[in-house]
Design a protein around this nucleic acid. Structure first.
Ligand SMILES: NC(=O)c1ccc[n+]([C@@H]2O[C@H](COP(=O)([O-])OP(=O)(O)OC[C@H]3O[C@@H](n4cnc5c(N)ncnc54)[C@H](O)[C@@H]3O)[C@@H](O)[C@H]2O)c1
Ligand SMILES: NC(=O)c1ccc[n+]([C@@H]2O[C@H](COP(=O)([O-])OP(=O)(O)OC[C@H]3O[C@@H](n4cnc5c(N)ncnc54)[C@H](O)[C@@H]3O)[C@@H](O)[C@H]2O)c1
Lengths: 225, 225
DNA sequence: CAATTCCTGTTAATAGTTTAACAGGGCAAA
DNA sequence: TTTGCCCTGTTAAACTATTAACAGGAATTG
C-alpha cells in the first residue's frame, strides 16, 4: 500500500461499508469465488454498484475490466485500512444475556479485534470462562485493562449502572466505548463513543411499516436498477 | 394534531432522533421535570441544540420562551407521529442469547410496540415462556403471525439459518424485518428491511480509536459549544 | 422602563453523501 | 475487423443533513 496514502479522510459511511464489504467478501471467498463484480457486492449490501465503485476508488483499489475485483486482494486492502496493525483488545462489561451474545458471536471469528475480558459484579460469574473469555470483577478493571492492553469497552450492564461503569472505563484508560444500554453517557472529547439502542431501530421500522404507500425507498429497493 | 399535517416526509435521521428524544424525555419525566430546554436534550443526545430545535420545528411543536418544552406534551406528540394507532406486534425468531436479551429488554416497557411471540426450532424451547412471551415452533409461524397480527419480525437465528427464516417471515405476511444476524438478506420491495451488525460498529470504533489525533469530531465533541 | 440575557423559531449557507452521466477499455460475436 | 456489450473509474450534479446566523420575545436587572 502506498505509504503516502492516508485514509484518515474517508467518509464515515465508507468506513462502515468497507467493514460490511469485507464481511460479504469473506463469505464469497469461502464459497470458492475468486473475483466479484461491483454489482454483486452492491446486491448483497442493498446499495448501488456506483457506490461500491466509488468507495473502492476512494481507497485506491482497481479491479479488472470484465472480471471484477480480486476478492482476496480486496479483503487484504480493507484490512490494511480499517484494522490496526497490532490488533485491538476489547472488554465487555456486564456478562448478562447481551454480553454473552456478543462474546459468543465474536468467538471463532478471525479479526484484529478480540474480546479479551469480561467484567461483572455478580460473584457467581466472576472467575468463569465464557467461550474462552474470563470474567473479572469490575473492581479489578483498572488492573486488567492495563495488563491486557484493552482499548475498547462495550457496556452491557443494566441501564441503572451505565453511568458508573462508563466513568470507570474512562478512568481505566479506555479509548473507545460502545454503549448498548438505553442510557446515554458522557465521555471526554478524546474518547470515541458510539451508542446503539435497538428500540430506536425498531421504532423506525415500525414508522415506515405503518406508512403503507409512502414508505421511502429502502436501500434495497433503491438498489434495484 | 392537525390532521392535514403529514409526517411522511420527515428526514430519516429525524425519525431516529425523535425516538431517542422520547426515550430521554421519559427519563426526565420520571425524575420529576416538567420542562426541558433544547440544549438539555442536545447534551443528552450528544448533538447540537440547533438540531433539536430544527427537528421540533419539523414536527411543528413549539416550546415556551425561557421555559423550554413541555416534556409530557412533547412525548405525546412524538408518540402521535412515530407510534401506530393500534399498536404493532413483533416476533423474535431464534430464542438464543440475543433473542432472549431483546425480549428481556422489551418487557415492562410501555410502547405501542410489543413482542408477542418467539419462534425456535429447538423442541426444548418450544412451549416455554420468557418474560411472558411464548415460544412457538417455526412450523407454526404462518398461523401465529396471522392469529396475533404480527407485522415485524426480528431475526436472531444462527447465520446459516438466516435466509430460510427470512423467506419464511416474508411468506407469513410480515411487513418489516430487522435482521441482527451477520448474513444479509433479500426481501421484496414492499417489505421494509433494517440490518444491523455489531461488528461493523465495533470496527468503526476501532478505526477511529487507532487514529489518535485525526479522529473526526464525534457527535459528542461537536455538541460542545 | 431601557438594557441585558437567555431562550425559541426560521432562513440561509455549508458540509456530507449519493446518484447520474459518461469516457474508456476489453471481450465476444458477427 | 467491426459492432455491441459489459464492465470499471471519475467527474459533475443532485440530494440530504447539519450548522451558522439572526430575528424576536419574555423574564431579569439595574
Ligand atoms: N441495545 C440493545 O439493543 C439492547 C438489547 C437488549 C438489552 N439491552 C440493554 O443491555 C443491558 C444488558 O441487558 P441483558 O439482557 O444482558 O441484562 P442482564 O441482566 O442479563 O445482564 C446484566 C449483567 O450485568 C451485570 N451487572 C450488574 N451491575 C453491574 C455492574 N455495576 N458492573 C458490572 N456488571 C454488572 C449483571 O450481573 C448481569 O450479569 C441492559 O441495559 C439492556 O437494557 C440493549
Ligand atoms: N447483530 C449483532 O450485534 C449480533 C450480536 C450477537 C449475535 N448476533 C447474531 O445473532 C444470532 C443469534 O446469536 P445468539 O448468540 O443468540 O445464538 P444462539 O445460538 O444462542 O441462539 C440461536 C437460537 O436460534 C435457534 N434456531 C436455530 N435454527 C433455527 C431456525 N431455523 N429457526 C428458528 N430458530 C432457530 C436456536 O435453537 C437458538 O435458540 C447469530 O446469527 C449471531 O451471529 C448478532
Amino acid at each position: 500500500m502506498d505509504p503516502n496514502k492516508s485514509f484518515k479522510h474517508l467518509p464515515h459511511k465508507t468506513i462502515e461499508r468497507l467493514s460490511q464489504y469485507r464481511r460479504a467478501l469473506l463469505i464469497c471467498l469461502n464459497n470458492g469465488k475468486s473475483h466479484i463484480f461491483s454489482h454483486e457486492i452492491a446486491q448483497i449490501q442493498h446499495i448501488t454498484s456506483v457506490q461500491v465503485r466509488r468507495d473502492l476508488m476512494l481507497i485506491g483499489y482497481s479491479g479488472t475490466l470484465r472480471k471484477g475485483y480480486n476478492i482476496q486482494e480486496l479483503i487484504d486492502l480493507i484490512g490494511e485500512i480499517i484494522d490496526s496493525n497490532e490488533g485491538i483488545n476489547v472488554a465487555v462489561v456486564g456478562m448478562g444475556n447481551l454480553g454473552r451474545a456478543l462474546i459468543n458471536y465474536f468467538s471463532g471469528k478471525r479479526h484484529k479485534l478480540s474480546i479479551v475480558a469480561g467484567f461483572d459484579t455478580n460473584p457467581d460469574k466472576i472467575g468463569n470462562y465464557m467461550n474462552g473469555v474470563e470474567c473479572f470483577s469490575v473492581e479489578d478493571m483498572h488492573k486488567i485493562v492495563k495488563e491486557k492492553d484493552i482499548t475498547i469497552g462495550i457496556i452491557t450492564v443494566p441501564a441503572s449502572q451505565t453511568t458508573e461503569i462508563c466513568d470507570l472505563l474512562v478512568e481505566s484508560g479506555i479509548k473507545g466505548i460502545l454503549n448498548y444500554t438505553p442510557k446515554p453517557v458522557n465521555v471526554p472529547d478524546e474518547i470515541y463513543l458510539e451508542e446503539y439502542d435497538m428500540i430506536t431501530t425498531l421504532e423506525k421500522v415500525a414508522f415506515y411499516v405503518k406508512l403503507p404507500d409512502e414508505a421511502p425507498e429502502t436501500k434495497q429497493s433503491k438498489a434495484r436498477p
